[in-house]
């Protein structure tokens, strides 16, 4: 790794101040960022790495004001074993316990998981070999290249730093996003509180709407009412040390309200609104489950290389819904 300076801030304010300076970058567990630095993937190499782990108090899990509140620095391994999480959001514990690999889970934080950079192999190729739209360049190399793991809902169009419109077909790989979306979670930052669905963004060298110096501090999950059912499913090619090619989360309330969230299929984690609409107010049947699966991918625009993801979403959603039948 090329050299950089390092800061162990004691407070959020100190960290925020440092991160407002150009050329500084925040690091939680480091699992994502260190790889990016070792491969030197960005246009600019940071001058300063700010270690967020030195800030006390960001790793608590507690129930407060009718919500399960999870500090941004809670580690995935701890989450997977946490009693409160197992009680109120067991699917989040399950999702956290299946990420990456055992050792990585013990040192990766939920905040880092949500903020990680795209895994697109063009984006990640060393020495900024592909100076793509997400780096500030013009092209999305995956659009015309090998996009088997990329978005099946088309590219995201976003404005780059110069205000020019650019496209990117990389998916958001924040593995905990779908369960948090289905659970109706909120994200608390040093500046604001956002529904989790509004937290993600497609920007140059970023997958969130966080501004420079703004830090994610907490995730709040409203306590689900009694009788709520939830399911989480991830599908990866390898059973460990792998990102899911598709993951999904379902919450079903006793009133048959459904929230279905999908990851790995679009530039941002998405809600399968057409499927939710179809399911709303209905008791589950195998036919309904199958129809919901089809509805979830109705608006998809896959490429030849990644159309398999639609089949996976259809099947997995159908099967998980069937498993929720009374």
């Amino acid at each position: 790794m090329r050299p950089f300076n390092h800061l162990n801030p004691a407070t959020l304010e100190e960290a925020a101040e440092a991160l407002r300076q150009p050329g500084s970058v925040a690091m939680a567990g480091g699992g994502d960022l260190l790889g990016a630095l070792k491969d030197d993937i960005a246009r600019e190499y940071p001058k300063l790495v700010v270690n967020l782990k030195s800030i006390p108090g960001l790793d608590r899990t507690e129930v407060r004001d009718g919500a399960l509140c999870i500090g941004a620095l809670c580690l995935l391994g701890d989450l997977s074993r946490n009693e409160l999480v197992l009680q109120y959001a067991p699917m989040l514990a399950e999702a956290a316990g299946k990420c990456a690999s055992p050792a990585l889970r013990e040192n990766s934080s939920i905040g880092g998981n949500l903020c990680q950079l795209p895994r697109c192999w063009y984006f990640r190729k060393l020495n900024n070999r592909f100076d793509c739209a997400r780096k500030g360049g013009e092209r999305c190399f995956a659009l015309s290249g090998d996009n088997r793991y990329h978005s099946v809902f088309g590219p995201a169009v976003f404005e780059n730093c110069d205000g020019k419109k650019r496209a990117c077909i990389a998916v958001n790989q924040a593995e905990l996003a779908p369960p948090l979306m289905a659970l109706g979670a909120e994200i608390v930052t040093t500046l604001r509180t956002l529904p989790v669905g509004e937290f993600f963004g497609v920007r140059v060298m970023s997958t969130t709407v966080l501004e420079p110096g703004e830090l994610l501090t907490e995730i709040r999950i409203p306590l689900p009412e009694a009788g709520t059912k939830m399911r989480y499913k991830r599908f990866s090619f390898r059973k460990s040390i792998d990102f899911p090619v598709v993951n999904l989360a379902i919450v079903k309330t006793p009133e048959n309200e459904y929230r279905v969230a999908l990851g790995g299929v679009a530039p941002m984690p998405i809600r399968a609104e057409a499927a939710e609409e179809l399911l709303r107010g209905k008791e589950l049947t195998p036919e309904l489950a199958e129809a919901a699966g089809r509805a979830a991918v109705r608006d998809a625009k896959p490429t030849e290389a990644n159309a398999y993801k639609l089949q996976l979403v259809k099947t997995l959603l159908k099967r998980e819904l069937i498993s929720m039948m009374d």
């Binding site: 390092h6 162990n8 690091m27 480091g30 699992g31 260190l34 790889g35 790495v49 270690n51 782990k53 030195s54 391994g77 055992p102 050792a103 990585l104 013990e106 040192n107």
Partner: peptide
């Protein structure tokens, strides 16, 4: 805890 030492900055290990 099991930790991947290649994936941790020593400067974070104070």
């Amino acid at each position: 805890k099991p930790t991947l030492s290649c994936n941790v900055l020593a400067a974070d290990c104070g």
